[in-house]
Design a protein around this nucleic acid. Structure first.
Lengths: 140, 140
DNA sequence: AATTATAACGTAACCATTACGGTTTGTAAA
DNA sequence: TTTACAAACCGTAATGGTTACGTTATAATT
């Protein structure tokens, strides 16, 4: 879905340096279509670059969120990130069992704007939770 | 909107004791139609009952969330609570300036369920952010 | 009034996140 | 290719929201 994004160009275009570590983080997210915690990213990166600082992880995750390489979500009080597919407005279904993400396109923000006469909606947050096809079968 | 809820009965029906402190917390939420942080609740309560423990605040907020007296939401990594109006399915518009809450009733979860063939949606989280009528005027 | 289970207190621990001074490294210009 | 500099990174500690726990107090029940 996002294979053709030139992340090096995206970084450069925001005056961010292209570092091995950043590319490793991006690669990790690209291989995992789900929301991932900073801790899990740290563990992966610390295996590749022993002694890497938490600061590096947190800073890079946030930086890449700012330039739209990653998407951010809060789950049980913790920040989680996933690779961004930002060419169109969308929301996420998240499997509660395996974390798999599916994109949904329908978005009724206009309907809500009509319902809320007078106020001005600037942004919104929508997330759907449940079980993906595979995880439903596992339980049965 | 929630004036006629008998909170004492709700507490008793869940084998929770009716304490002055709990009633004070409920009263505070009833007077403020917006999401409030534990810290702000603590400051209010510490003025009424000097020396009150943070533990008491956090435990009571969560307990009252469990029995549906309060609703919970995460804002910038922090938990916030508001009084619950739980007699019907709804979502919230939240004013980014003053925190005012407005309820919206439209919810297209069926549409999303149709879009996501195979998966099973169990729950969802929807929040709208923007400016209420008053706050729009203040800026102009 | 006595009993018992729940609530609250005081305090410290926990854990995700952020901050900071010193060092290294990517990048672009000389 | 070397140099210069801003950015990135490291090591470590601080911050701040939240939770835990043993003891004491209090609401509800008998």
């Amino acid at each position: 879905m996002t294979e053709h994004v030139n992340y090096k160009e995206v970084l450069r275009s925001h005056n961010l340096k292209v570092t091995e570590k950043r590319l490793s983080i991006i690669e990790y997210f690209n291989d995992h279509n789900r929301y991932i915690s900073p801790k899990e990213v740290y563990e992966y990166m610390n295996a590749l670059y022993p002694g890497i600082s938490y600061d590096t992880i947190y800073r890079n995750l946030y930086t890449m969120y700012e330039v739209n390489i990653l998407e951010q979500s809060t789950f049980e009080g913790e920040l989680h990130y996933t690779i961004s597919c930002s060419d169109h407005h969308h929301h996420h279904f998240i499997c509660e069992k395996c974390g798999l993400i599916k994109v949904v396109h329908y978005c009724p923000v206009d309907t809500w704007q009509n319902e809320l006469e007078g106020v001005k909606i600037n942004s919104h947050k929508i997330e759907l939770y449940g079980l993906c096809t595979k995880c439903q079968k596992k339980i049965a």
